[in-house]
Each structure stands twice: as C-alpha cells, then as structure tokens.
Amino acid sequence: MARMKFLCDAERCIECNACVTACKNEHEVPWGINRRRVVTINDGQVGAEKSMSVACMHCSDAPCMAVCPVDCFYKTEDGVVLHDKDLCIGCGYCFYACPFGAPQFPASNASAPGGQATDWFGARGKMDKCTFCAGGPEENGSEAEFSKYGRNRLSEGKLPLCAEMCSTKALLGGDGDVLADIYRERVTVRGKGAEVWGWGTAYGKPGQQSDTATSDK
C-alpha cells in the first residue's frame, strides 16, 4: 500500500518558487493563501544559505485532525490528510496546531498580510490546505471538487504537480518507500547529508510509522 509523502532536499532547492506558482495555478488557490511556500534559512549568508519548500506534510499523527472541534479532517488510505469544507467552521485551531503552517484561512485577514482588516469578527471562512493533489469529498474530478479543493491529480494516476515539475528534483512527492529509495541512492552518490527535513516531525521516527503497518493488510 502506498503511503504518500513529501520530501525536500535542502542541498538541491534553489528557491525558484516554481512549486509555489505551479500549485497556485493548478488549483486556482484563493487569494492570500499559500498551500506551498519556499523558506530560505540564512538568506544571503554565503556558505550557510539553505532553502526549503514546505506545505502540508500529511502527518501520521496529524495535529490538525486532533484539535478540530467538528472533526472535519480525515486521512485517506494513501495517508493523505484531507478535510471536508462543508463541515469546517473556520475556528482556526488547525492553524494554531500545525507545525508547518499548512492550514490557512482565506478572505480578509486571518492569514493575509496586514492592512486588510475588513472582517472585524475574524469570521475567517473555510480553512484551505494542501490536498496532495487529491481533491476532497466530492466526486473525483468533478467541478464541485475543483472549486473547493483544486484538481484531483491522484485519481488521474498523477502525483502532486509541485514535486513532478521541480526542475532540480529537490522536492519529491509520492509513495514514501520509493522516495526513500531515491533519496538513499542520492545520498550514497553525494556521500553525505542524510537528514530528511520534516520527516521526523511528520511521520515519526523509523519504527513508529504505525499507519503504514495498519494499511498493509
């Protein structure tokens, strides 16, 4: 059984922001929301600059799922964490809980830059997050699904566009076992640098990945 994961290689990311743009374009993401973003650490410091592309990591023990007061999140059999916008009440708890800053709120203010405070009671609208290009509860590939969650590439047998179009192959996405193989090979050739960013937080330590074990049956 495939367990979908993202992997970003800090040695390869060149901060081109193509993954960000591709995501926005593919899903027609609402204004002010970044389902994916690129963060540069030690920007401009020669020899210390590292960039990292980050979105929802589709955690094994997802904090957003745990704190949602209406229990609108669910995890598919491929380990993708999705949410039902028909149930979401826009309380913001998933936004507080997520380590990666993935769930965000559209409309006027809650996640948008300052100065757009038109929404005085922070009504916030429905939360939006990366879907691993897997759509939502609506029928696969339907118009309703697209308008709420964006395109459903997984049901077409494709992988997230951000990863598939990454020019340096810094960002990888897909079956976790295959990704680990690809990365292992890469590290062997490179000689060093086996840290995989975010995997410890998102998927637990090796041997803790209970969700892959249960889904093997």
Partner: peptide, 10 residues
C-alpha cells in the same frame, strides 16, 4: 501507476 510515476522523479 503511482509507483511508476514516483520512480520517474529519480
């Protein structure tokens, strides 16, 4: 198909 596509990224 998903496995095949994942492998294509290497």
């Amino acid at each position: 198909e998903i496995k095949r596509r994942t492998k294509l990224q290497s």
